[in-house]
Every structure is written in structure tokens, then in C-alpha cells.
Design a binder for these strands. Structure first.
Lengths: 168, 168
DNA sequence: ATAATCTTTCAATAAGTTTTGAAAATTCAG
DNA sequence: CTGAATTTTCAAAACTTATTGAAAGATTAT
């Protein structure tokens, strides 16, 4: 396989994966493009490489910057802005984890916490069953949140080496 | 808050969360409904409670059964089928993890493995940079997969107690 | 076998999401 | 300040995914 072919392949596949992940397909493609680019790219480069509109390119690059996956690069004597992706895969993963935690876990805990204090007899079987179910979900979500926090803060080697020791 | 109100609240919120997760909103609502129901429900019950069509109810219940999150219950002397959700939250979580691994991680590894063997000089800086980047992603995804496999197979107490020891 | 009851399928439609492209806003050099 | 270059916004259009509901397919009681 030729290098350019492989890059194309990677970009397309990353896009498909992204959509299976609930991440916008174009955002995933822009990310992939910047990941395998040998130098920072401008909005025009991105538009051209992915055959997408200016608005689309701009929007997705900005989302990627908000996720902390892409940085803006200023080149002296050039009006255009250039963009470059974080290349350390552990950092990429923790940043994605952080976003998913924020979008998935945190709202869940928020909702669960609003669901305490049911009116009526606490000894009533129905009330008890419901409260206990919600509590077990809450407890679980709390543990998951702690785990993700640890992973997000962890240094790569520390985390994997400890984990592998643990599961051995 | 009244019990029925709290249940409604939980169902609606679980649905919203589901869609933020890339899980079909109705599927999440059906799941939530069955999670807090005090007895198994029929398709008609589900249609009524969630104000959805028969086709929709049927389809989502079947998806939930495929995920292993819901079981069909047969009641003697009743033609209708009833449905009941897995209540053990750890089992629910591992089943969801399994589906996500299948949809997200496995295809990623498949793609990455196709991207080896780039033609041309292996000492060429561009080729080298690309290959190394793909390899680091592959290595990472492989670790993540192993970790999820461990979690999916793990018994609840074993997993949390080990993990908490680790992060302490 | 027949009819009643229930489940499944699927084409049409509705709802939701992403993309475009042109206009508005911003930035910067002279 | 002016005007060229660039980025940002956003309403409309294209595309994608979910839902409906009626018809077809199963299943069971009589």
C-alpha cells in the first residue's frame, strides 16, 4: 500500500468509526487528517483534502480545539491560521474520555441525585424497591466517575503498568 | 416528589442520556421503564406508558433483548409476552460495555491492522512518522481492549476492590 | 380447520442532524 | 481609515435515522 493511500484509508475509516461512536463523522475525519499530516494545515487545506465546505471545516476544527485535540498554529508573515493535532495518543484518549465523562456520566449523576426523597411511606415495598434501584445506579455511576478521574489524571505508564500487574 | 413523578422523571432523563450516548432514545426509555417497573410489562403497557407505536415498542424491546438487558417472561394462561429488565447494575454495565467494545474498539483494531506495510523506503521520514503513529494507536487500542475484556469478565466486588486498592 | 389474539415487518413519513454557501464580522497591512 | 484577506455565522438544503401504522405472519384455544 502506498503512503497516501494508507492515509486516505485511515481518514475514511476514522470517520466511519467516529460516527459509530456518536462523534460527528467530519470531525473525526478532520482529526484523522491532522493526525497523519506531516505539517500543520490551513482551513483551505482541510477543505480541499476532505472536499468539505468552509463552514463545515471551520466548525469542526473549532470543536476539535474545544476538545483540546487540536491547536491553532500561527505562522509568522502569514494571515492564515494553521492547525495541528495532539500526537500523543494517551493525551488524545484522556481528552476524549474527559468529554465523554462530561457528556455521559456527569448528567447521569445529576439526574440521579434529583431523584431522592420520594414522598410516602418508606416501608412501602414499591417505594423501597425504586429507591434502592436508584441508589445502586448512583453508587455505580459514582465509582465509574472516580475511576475515570483517576485515568484522566494518570500518567500513561503509571496507569497501564499498574493495571496490567493487577489483571495478571 | 411522588413515586410516579420520580419514575417519569427517571425515564425521561434516561432517554435524554441515551441519545447523548449514541443509544436510541426510545430504547433507553423502554429500558428505564422496565428498570423501575414493579412487574414485567407487555408490549401494550410499554406503548401506553411511553406513547409510542406498536412497531417501535416491539423493535426496541427486541434490541434490548439482543443486548441481554431485557428478558421475555411467559405468564401461564396469558397469550401476551411480558418483559423484564436485568436489575443488577453491574451486569447492565458489563453488557453495555460489551456492545460498545464491539461497536467501537473492535472495528478500530480491524482498520488499524490493515494499515501496515507501507511501500517505499522505511527510513523515509514521512513513512516512518506515519507507521509509528499508527503503531502507537494500535498498541493503545489493544491495551484498552484487554482492559475491557477483564472488566466484562470480572465479578463486581473483585473489580472494584482491586481498583480502589490501586488508586488509593 | 377456524378464528381470535398477538407479534413482526416494512414502506412511507416524520424528526433530527449535518452540510453548504453566501453574507456578516473580524483582522491586519499600508 | 480603507480595503483585502480571512474567519465566523446561520438559514436553507441535503442527508440520516427513527417512528408509524397497517398488513402479513405466528401462535394458540376451541
Amino acid at each position: 500500500m502506498k503512503l497516501d493511500e494508507a492515509k486516505q484509508q485511515f481518514i475514511q475509516s476514522w470517520g466511519v468509526l467516529g460516527s459509530q461512536w456518536g462523534i460527528n463523522r467530519t470531525m473525526a475525519q478532520v482529526h484523522a487528517l491532522l493526525l497523519v499530516a506531516s505539517a500543520p494545515l490551513s482551513t483551505d487545506n482541510i477543505m480541499e483534502e476532505l472536499s468539505i465546505s468552509r463552514g463545515n471545516a471551520n466548525m469542526n476544527v473549532r470543536d476539535l480545539m474545544n476538545w483540546g485535540l487540536v491547536d491553532k498554529i500561527i505562522v509568522q508573515g502569514d494571515r492564515k491560521e494553521y492547525f495541528s493535532a495532539e500526537k500523543d495518543i494517551w493525551k488524545v484518549a484522556t481528552k476524549i474520555m474527559y468529554q465523554r465523562k462530561k457528556r455521559e456520566l456527569d448528567p447521569m449523576l445529576k439526574v440521579l441525585n434529583q431523584l431522592t426523597d420520594i414522598e410516602g411511606d418508606k416501608r412501602n415495598a414499591e417505594v423501597k424497591a425504586f429507591t434502592e434501584r436508584i441508589d445502586s445506579i448512583k453508587k455505580f455511576a459514582g465509582q465509574a466517575e472516580k475511576t475515570m478521574d483517576v485515568m484522566i489524571k494518570a500518567e500513561e505508564n503509571w496507569f497501564w503498568s499498574s493495571f496490567l500487574k493487577l489483571i495478571k
